[in-house]
Nucleic acid binder design. Structure first.
Lengths: 198, 198
DNA sequence: ACAAAATTTGACCGAACGGTCAGTTGATCT
DNA sequence: AGATCAACTGACCGTTCGGTCAAATTTTGT
């Protein structure tokens, strides 16, 4: 559990999230982390390996937040609404501190590097699946409470994840974090429309 | 109407879309366009200016396709479904040709450069608004046909755009273009859930 | 025909890029 | 005490980056 290693990952999350992968050089990243470049390459064989570690740590933070929401004692509809608040407040904080909505590290890196670094795309895919899995229990709860038809809950969770990601794209493009919760208002209705399992 | 200029823009659309902005150098771009680098800088003062021109041309193509769907004589629900097919087939074509889902140039560039090049973010914002405006008549049609409540049609068009973008993020991350139409299945339901205008 | 303007050329720039490496340090184990 | 090894240092590598420029060529307007 190296402190240096962790500092590098945290700095990578911060810089790649707010400025993109290509626009951040290893020298600058190391300077901001307070780590020598040689040391960084002792822990990570390449810049993209550091990125993959960053994606994993970033994902875990969101997965845990979603799991906490799923385990809370709210009504399932409220839980869905809460899901959208997590990235919304992160984006609001970034906007008030730096002036712009930051987006989602998973989506940003997947779109920027997905076709160029296959391992990054796979890391992003694992990350999406992991978050989707954290959402699914809430969908199951909606079904068992009879609030939506008996749909495929995996698909339902994916729709919610897609709504969140779509909201983040709109938020970044319009520099307006409130677009995320706005997308959330259509979530239950979207689930309701899916075909029930035969 | 310079042919060289157009060739540069087309090559920029192609390369930035499939490989990202940072990963494509001006030298490579010019080589593929068959244009000398000095010539490229005669038409565009910087790489990012070329990108902005590329975003505008790319957007116009999609806007026109959406407008054509809106003007067709299908049922409004079918039109909504058709909207999702446009990026889906583009992504399927890219995947069969290059092996990966390409994403959307507007979203890709907005996420990669939105915080680093303000003019690119503004170009992306104009692009999103332009496409949203092409979607809105379909939502109006849904309302006037009584298929959905009397919602704010601008908001409704934005939800659909968000669903498309969310689907593209999932498509790229999972390298599976069918995720886009999958998101489309929840579209009408999402609109139905929005609060009617008082 | 001729001048003016637009286009094209390709060599060139300094800076920044990702990554390497020989060697130093400091903690841990025998 | 001596050996071992991960952690760390900082100078250094070749390459590529985005961008420039003076000169040559082609196109256009008169």
């Amino acid at each position: 559990m190296s402190e240096t290693r962790e500092k590098l990952i945290d700095t990578a999350i911060d810089l790649f999230l707010t400025r993109g992968y290509g626009a951040v050089g290893t020298a600058e990243l190391c300077r901001q982390a307070g780590v020598n470049k040689g040391t960084a390459y002792h822990f990570f064989p390449s810049k993209s390996d550091l990125l993959i570690a960053a994606i994993e740590k970033y994902t875990e933070k969101f997965r845990a937040a979603f799991e906490r929401i799923a385990a809370s004692d709210r009504a399932p509809e409220d839980k869905v609404r809460e899901l959208f608040k997590v990235p919304t407040s992160a984006n609001k904080k970034c906007k008030s501190e730096h002036g712009f909505s930051q987006g989602c590290l998973i989506a940003n890196m997947s779109l920027e590097l997905g076709s160029v670094e296959p391992e990054v795309r796979l890391a992003a895919q694992r990350a999406l699946k992991s978050i989707q899995a954290a959402i699914e229990p809430i969908v199951r709860e909606l079904v068992s409470a009879g609030r939506i038809p008996d749909i495929d809950t995996r698909r339902g969770a994916e729709i919610i994840l897609g709504l969140i990601q779509g909201g983040i794209v709109l938020a970044k493009g319009n520099n307006d974090p409130s677009k995320i919760v706005q997308m959330g208002r259509g979530a239950i209705g979207a689930l309701r429309e899916l075909e029930p399992t035969s």
